[in-house]
Amino acid sequence: MAAPMENTPKILILTGEASGDLYGAQIASAMREVDPTLAFYGVGGIHMRASAVNLLADVSELGVVGFTEVLGKLGRIRTLFSRLRRFLSTDRPALVILIDYPGFNLRFARVAKESGIPVLYYISPKIWAWGAGRIRTIKETVNKMAVIFPFEVPLYEKAGVDVTYVGHPLLDIVKADGSVPEIRQRLGLAPDRGTVALLPGSRQGEVDRLLAPMLGAADILRQRLPDLQFLLPLADTLSEDLLRNRMKQSTVPIHLVRRDTYSAVAASDAAIVASGTATLETALLGIPMVIVYKVSPLTYPLARLVIRIDHIGLPNIIAGRTVVPELIQGDASPERIAETILPLLTDNQRRTAMTDAFAEVRRKLGTGGAARNTARIACAMALEKGVRS
């Protein structure tokens, strides 16, 4: 990649998760369409790298779930924070774009603000679920919020934060490539056998806690429905060798799928999904699912103290009711997972009720075009900074 010219406007994009890497890549590509002279730097993964973003660190080094789990990567996180602080001083980007990952990004927003660099926050922290006090920090440190849920707008407006609803990025991204028989044939699966997708998350900690009970559930399901086949789409942030070694503990063959996640999920009859963005992606593909969630025994009681909503799964939060079963902590056992997903494989009425609810979720998300709309805002902010400088 050629080095940018000295006077080229620089944009710094920061995320700490696999989904944010995808969104960051979209933003960089959309901004470059508006202004091809921009140079991009950031923390991301393979998608941002493919969109010509000069990576200062990889998201695979950062992604953790839970309060106590952060401690294991605290040294690495502090080192990166110092490196990015130096980047602000030496390279003076025209704009900082923060994507989700609030524990890190909100601290960095304050540093950017103190350095006189404008901050655009895309994919809001979930202040409606927990951490409502963060809205005060956002008001003090963030110049503009670009939010992806319509219901987030009045929350920020009430607090006096400059906010715009830009649409939801997944509405433009989540698509399958081909019909179910075509996809199964392409993936080397039997086209006429029932298929279950296992999605244990994109972070190593999630896989450590969730893969074993998912594999256990697969063993139980295969005993009940011997014709079932199982697939596991591999997140870009995870090691294929590590996953293959873990899957050896299962007596059931698991077909590992690399870089064809949406098609793989769309070709499934049901899915077992770790709580997170993947639950909404699965809902948009119309695939019945069970949501599972586990954190460390120390983290869970702390989380219960601060979370202010009744659900953890995005489809349920958006619908405002339970449309997908949620199995949390001890309930996310092989037996309970198998017991809960079995009706979604055998009862057409249950399947139809859930897919109908997913159509409601899609309607509530509003419109697409999030990357394009956010790119216009970002380019305007960067240009304004350049004029003022």
Rank of each mutant, 00 (worst) to 15 (best):
D21S: 12
M48K: 12
A39R: 12
V65I: 15
M48I: 09
V43S: 01
M31C: 15
H47W: 04
M31R: 06
V65S: 11
T37Y: 07
A39S: 13
L38Q: 02
T8F: 08
V43P: 00
F40L: 04
A28C: 10
I13K: 07
Y41P: 01
A25M: 07
G66M: 10
N54K: 07
L62E: 04
R32W: 02
S51H: 05
L12I: 11
I46T: 15
L55V: 03
I11P: 12
I11N: 09
G63S: 13
V65K: 07
L56Q: 11
K10V: 04
G66F: 06
Q26L: 13
G16N: 15
E61V: 06
L56E: 13
V53K: 00
I46M: 13
D21P: 08
T15M: 12
Q26Y: 10
S29I: 08
M48G: 03
E61Y: 02
G16S: 13
A50N: 13
L22D: 00
A18K: 08
M31W: 07
K10A: 10
S19R: 07
D21L: 06
G20F: 10
V53S: 02
D35T: 08
A39D: 11
Y41D: 01
L22E: 00
G24Q: 10
G63L: 01
Y41T: 00
G66A: 07
A50V: 01
G16Q: 08
L55C: 04
Y41R: 01
E61Q: 11
I46L: 13
L62S: 00
N54I: 07
R49Q: 14
H47Y: 11
S60G: 05
G20T: 13
A39H: 09
M31Y: 06
R32I: 00
G45R: 04
V59I: 15
G44T: 07
D58E: 14
G44P: 04
E33H: 12
L14R: 02
D58L: 01
S60T: 02
E17A: 14
A28H: 06
I27G: 00
E33F: 02
T8V: 09
A57C: 02
V34L: 12
Y23W: 10
P9A: 10
